[in-house]
């Protein structure tokens, strides 16, 4: 089991999937670093991280069974 990551909008296009599993990620800041290092294009797209259906401000510790969502803003109308 690892951290389950659900990916929305253009982030899913960059990552190439709308779901990811990652192991050994301590907190949401390390998650961002890992994702941006694996998918450098992500650095151009601001997104927020939700853990267990709640958006995180700042950094938050992650547990092995957490479900995380990556949400970018959409502009279309």
């Amino acid at each position: 089991m690892g951290i389950e990551i659900k990916i929305f909008g253009q982030l899913a296009d960059i990552i190439g999937s709308d779901e990811l599993q990652l192991q050994d990620i301590d907190d949401t800041s390390s998650l961002r670093e890992k994702l941006i290092s694996d998918f450098p294009k992500l650095a151009n797209y601001p997104f927020v991280v939700a853990v267990g259906k709640k958006i995180v401000n700042g950094n938050q510790k992650l547990n092995a069974d957490d479900v995380v969502a990556l949400l970018p803003p959409f502009a279309g109308g």
Partner: peptide, 26 residues
């Protein structure tokens, strides 16, 4: 701004005009 503190840069902010949108979605 609490939800989305910052917008993507102009060259990465894609609109329906550029990427398309399914008719029923709006």
């Amino acid at each position: 701004r609490c939800l989305f503190p910052s917008p993507p840069s102009a060259e990465h902010a894609l609109s329906c005009e550029e990427i398309g949108v399914l008719g029923v979605l709006p």
